[in-house]
Nucleic acid binder design. Structure first.
Length: 499
RNA sequence: GGCGCAUUCGUCUAGCGGCCUAGGACGCAUCCCUCUCAAGGAUGAGACCAGGGGUUCGAAUCCCCUAUGCGCUACCA
């Protein structure tokens, strides 16, 4: 085992966490725990204009839901508090002015660029470069004039004009960039807040972060960060730049909310299991071997290896996630767990009350059996209510055409006979035989006794009578779940429908 | 436009010079099971390893070029 790693997830509070973003948190968490180290949460709230109320809570909820517990962070504290960058302003000021004193940074009396100027600068790097260096070699008179004009300066980093910088990285080949192509980045804004570039380096250093895991969109500016570490005389953490997640096949660009659900919270609301989402997210860009792809959180912690992160961006596809989720529901969850997790969705649909979500009391057994009817059928939890709502209604409220009962039987009259026979049979079936298996066996025998061509001719109308729809769970299982009285009611109503 | 990274079945991937007539999974097709829908079981189609040059006895694996994709190009992160 390698040395203990200290990693962090450092989102800015600009809204709900995006799954592409949270995936870097997953990798960070796994690395930390794999090495027996710490995973921290730090909030990068250095842009006051983009702050969104409630973001911190959304971030914390998402991490907790996925089971990514952090060892240090806002609220819980830690040896390097505070973990909110807005509360660490004097630190950034200190290092920025230190760099100025050392001649490695300088005050720049810029006016803010207009949208057009920015567009122009994007097209022509020379414009951008010269703009950023406008005050690099300014005279005292120029500075005094700017101050007299009331311009508040920013502090810019004095990037070396010559040489090349490379960024060592675990995932991709080290980018090699000419220093002359780099602009003098802003370290401290005119409002006294640091930029990301300064803040994350100061914090990662002070918080003793060993591995920085962040999206590949940071690769282009990583050379600048290398230079900054050098200027500050600090050792660099290991850099890890996993690829971004792309839109599904056929759609260009990185995963966007137009194309699919992108926020962790949305997946929760749709009824994905956190363990399935976690498993899927990890698989998107990481592999253990050529076969294994089902991993619990514990297995991931044990097996995670940075070197097996794929350098290529992966296209997001909800189909495999759906399969994984269905697999977890079907094979990993017990009936009780499945029912428990379905509760919020049943309440949402009005099938049970909020009080019952907290404590079902005597209804627990019934709910577990009802949910069990569709456990191997649903892909996501939000599908559960729609699949079993009929179980919550009396027979008289089921609406379906009588013709549906007939199925492959020759007539309504013939079907009615079969149902009548089923009623007689089930009414007399001993209690100990009133189980899914017992009922299935009994009704099969009955269909033979009635000399039907196949037992489907009996099961079909019985099943329709139970649920009023053509697609449903197993007929015998529904009968058992209803219990004898309710099941017989359903059959009687069906008989009446047939006239 | 400039700079950077990447490139194996439709998709996620295994592969780190001979084990590859390229393996697994999702999806798809067919069959089995079957009272419906699922689930489950079996089988199959599907990648001349982006294209072109090298290096080597030998390349999906190393190098170069081209193409394509993605990212960045703010006093945002």
């Amino acid at each position: 085992m390698t040395e203990k790693a200290r990693t962090r997830y450092a989102p800015s509070p600009t809204g709900r966490p995006h799954i592409g973003n949270i995936r870097t948190a997953v990798f960070s968490y796994l690395l930390a725990k794999h090495t027996g180290g710490d995973f921290l949460l730090r909030i990068e709230d250095t842009d006051r204009k983009r702050y969104v109320e409630g973001s911190l809570e959304a971030i914390e909820d998402s991490l907790r839901w996925l089971g990514l517990d952090w060892d240090e962070g806002p609220g819980i504290g830690g040896p390097y508090e505070p973990y909110l960058q807005s509360e660490r302003l004097e630190l950034y000021l200190k290092y920025a002015t230190q760099l100025v004193a050392e001649g490695k940074a300088y005050y720049s009396y810029d006016r803010e660029r207009t949208e057009e100027e920015r567009k122009a600068a994007e097209k022509n790097p020379q414009v951008s470069l010269s703009f950023s260096r406008r005050w690099r070699e300014s005279t005292e008179e120029e500075r005094q004039a700017a101050i007299a004009d009331g311009i508040k300066p920013v502090i810019r980093f004095k990037v070396p004009l010559e040489g090349v910088t490379t960024v060592p990285d675990i995932v991709v080949n080290p980018p090699i960039v000419q220093n002359s192509s780099l602009s003098d980045l802003v370290l401290l804004k005119s409002d006294g807040f640091p930029t990301y570039h300064l803040a994350h380096i100061v914090d990662d250093h002070l918080m003793k972060i060993t591995h920085v895991i962040r999206g590949q969109e940071w690769l282009p500016s990583a050379a600048l960060h290398v230079l900054l570490y050098q200027a500050l005389g600090w050792e660099m953490p290991v850099m890890v730049h996993p690829p971004v997640i792309l839109n599904p096949p056929g759609v260009k660009g990185k995963l966007s909310k137009r194309e699919s659900a992108v926020y962790v919270g949305q997946y929760r609301e749709l009824g994905y299991l956190p363990e399935a989402l976690l498993n899927y997210l990890v698989l998107l860009g990481w592999s253990y071997d050529d076969k294994t792809e089902l991993f619990s959180k514990e297995e991931l912690v044990e097996k995670f290896d940075l070197n097996r992160i794929q350098p290529t961006p992966a296209k997001y596809s909800v189909e495999k996630l759906d399969w994984l989720n269905a697999y977890y529901i079907n094979h990993k969850l017990t009936r009780e767990e499945f029912a428990q997790r379905s509760l919020p969705f049943l309440a949402e649909a009005g099938l049970i009350t909020q009080d019952e979500v907290a404590d079902l009391g005597e209804r627990l057994g019934f709910i577990v059996r009802v949910c069990g009817l569709v456990k191997d059928k649903v892909k996501i939890l939000s599908e559960v209510p729609g699949e079993i709502d009929f179980m919550f209604k009396p027979a008289s409220e089921l609406e379906y055409p009588a013709q549906d009962l007939v199925g492959k039987n020759e007539s309504k009259a013939a079907t009615a006979k079969i149902l009548a026979a089923s009623i007689d049979y089930l009414a007399k079936l001993p209690d100990e035989k009133f189980t899914t298996a017992g009922i299935a066996e009994g009704l099969s025998q009955l269909s033979a006794d009635l000399e039907l061509k196949n037992r489907g001719l009996l099961f079909w109308p019985v099943r329709i009578a139970m649920c009023g729809r053509k697609n449903s769970p197993d007929a015998s299982a529904m009968i058992e779940t209803y219990g004898r009285e309710a099941a017989l009611d359903h059959l009687r109503v069906a008989c009446e429908k047939l006239g």
